[in-house]
């Protein structure tokens, strides 16, 4: 058996006080949200709508997806009132 534990407790319980981050949803991603920091007005809508709750608050200035968990659904880009988040194909990145 793998030594990695996905759940700390006995059941399918997760800590909703922090983030609901316990699945390897990052591996599902084919499109990556890229935040144009200068356009971001820190309204927080992307973080509110993000299904995996993976938007990281960057010092109260802007938000950025945690790519370990971002599944590339594009909800943040759709909801951003400033159009500051652009979905780009994963193939354009060579960081993996």
């Amino acid at each position: 058996m793998t030594s990695k534990k996905y759940f700390q407790g006995e059941g399918p319980w997760s800590d909703a006080d922090q983030l609901v981050l316990y699945l390897d949803t990052g591996s599902w991603r084919s499109m990556r949200p890229v935040v144009e920091v200068e356009s971001c007005i820190y309204c927080g809508l992307c973080a509110l709508f993000c299904p995996t709750q993976c938007m990281i608050n960057k010092n109260g200035e802007y938000f950025e997806p945690n790519l370990d968990f971002c599944k590339g659904c594009g909800v943040c880009a759709k909801e951003c009132p400033r159009g500051a988040i652009i979905m780009k194909p994963e193939g354009e990145f060579n960081d993996e």
């Binding site: 759940f7 006995e10 059941g11 399918p12 319980w13 800590d15």
Partner: peptide
């Protein structure tokens, strides 16, 4: 706390084993 959370693949295996 999240209850009835997703546990697919190894996460599911882990909970079934428990």
């Amino acid at each position: 706390f999240g209850c009835g959370s997703h546990g697919i693949l190894q996460g599911y295996v882990e909970l079934r084993h428990k």
